[in-house]
Design a protein around this nucleic acid. Structure first.
Lengths: 228, 228
DNA sequence: CGGAATCTTGAGGCCCGTCAATAACGGTGG
DNA sequence: CCACCGTTATTGACGGGCCTCAAGATTCCG
């Protein structure tokens, strides 16, 4: 394979992404040849439930939401993929179908590497496998917390935590919610209406300040944390 | 290290456990030397939140429940560890503390291997790392489903699914619930009272039959599956 | 057999989901 | 720049599922 125009992009992707950190230069180059690059506009689907899941998808730039559809048709947000995050681990070995959807929230570029190639790669580059185990471990912790929060605390508490986490990630006084209320709602296991009401309630309690309909400011982080 | 009395036990453990499948004989022997063996009586804690988490814990025989404590003191069941299951992946790399508790539900024996040894092992035995990625992937799928179910369907539906899964795992006409109602409750994100009521309701609808207070029989699996 | 833990059953209330109608927003084209 | 229209957000009224509290029944286990 000669050097093609997209080679540069592929190597960028490899370098950006945590699971490919600490690999030898040779391995990095190997990965770059195995990876394919795709671009999605905001709103486009990267994959859908029912698609054959034969590759690992890594976000090189942008943002995408991953969600499931419950039997009764309700959406459940599973996570937001940021730059460097990946999805598809679930189906890396079982040759199966995606159970969830991934939709670009902004213009997003992703790398994909086939199940087969990735498995081979893990055999020859143990650091990759170790990075992978590490990443999956952190994902598990996060999922366990999400489950626990949803079942043990009130919507107001979950929303407060979500605001704190979101603002912390952006460390700015005034921050913009990256998701529509509908998506925040399914992420927190509730409805858009309830999100609206709770945001009003938090504002009336003087804990947050509403700037525009999706720009907010934390006024009292301590009390936000203490909501049951 | 000469052959000690517990070497036999240690190798058994290694052979029983899925993540150690497909390893070369040499690797299996190496693992056996790195593993320590412990026994816990029913009710004893294998680890607690706050303990230093410096090892991977694998259930060689028995059953244990893993749960978290929410800020408000409520328990959240995370999972049941069966023979061959393991926990500790979360803290395999971050040198940190356990966030959850593991308690033996019956007399249980576990193997433990230190973070450090396990990491070294993954570098030299790539199959192990691959098995690990596989196992973690399945765990993630299961957690995502748990989250989705808890937030999108009714307690009755969740309980129905739980009964179906439990009976399927034991393939017997009449099956015994392995957990106390309190634990089933926190697993399904509800309360013991509600579990009681819903079991009565399912019985009245003719979907299940109650034999004793924790022995049941599935009468109509199809309709159980269809509960919203 | 006895005491403790677990389970059941009832009554009451509240959180939050649902439905519906109005308002605000945001992107598009004239 | 503004008028327009689809999408998204807000607000209200209402009802129901489930949690809470409490008392009584049953089971478990020494």
């Amino acid at each position: 394979m000669g050097k093609l125009a997209h080679d540069h992009t592929a190597e960028d992707c490899v370098e950006l992404v945590p699971i490919f950190k600490n690999l030898s230069q040779t391995d990095i180059e190997t990965v770059a040849t195995l990876v394919t690059h795709h671009h999605y506009k905001s709103g486009e689907y990267i994959f859908s439930a029912g698609d054959t899941a034969d590759s690992l998808t890594i976000v090189a730039h942008g943002q995408a939401k991953v969600f499931q559809m419950a039997a009764n048709g309700k959406e459940q947000m599973l996570r937001i993929l940021q730059t460097g995050d990946f999805d598809g681990e679930a189906t890396l070995f079982a040759n199966s179908e995606h159970g969830s959807f991934a939709q670009a929230l902004m213009d997003t570029s992703v790398c994909q590497i086939s199940q087969k190639d990735f498995q081979t790669l893990m055999q020859t580059a143990p650091e990759l496998a170790v990075n992978m185990v590490n990443a999956l471990g952190r994902r598990i912790v996060q999922l366990e917390q999400q489950t626990t929060e949803v079942t043990t605390s009130s919507v107001e508490s979950r929303l407060a935590n979500y605001l704190l986490e979101t603002s912390a990630g952006l460390n700015e006084e005034v921050f913009t919610l990256p998701l529509k209320k509908k998506d925040i709602a399914t992420y927190l296991g509730t409805t858009p209406e309830t999100i609206s009401r709770k945001l009003t309630s938090l504002t009336e309690q003087g804990l947050i300040q509403k700037i525009t309909n999706n720009k907010f400011k934390i006024l009292d982080a301590d009390r936000l944390m203490m909501i049951d």
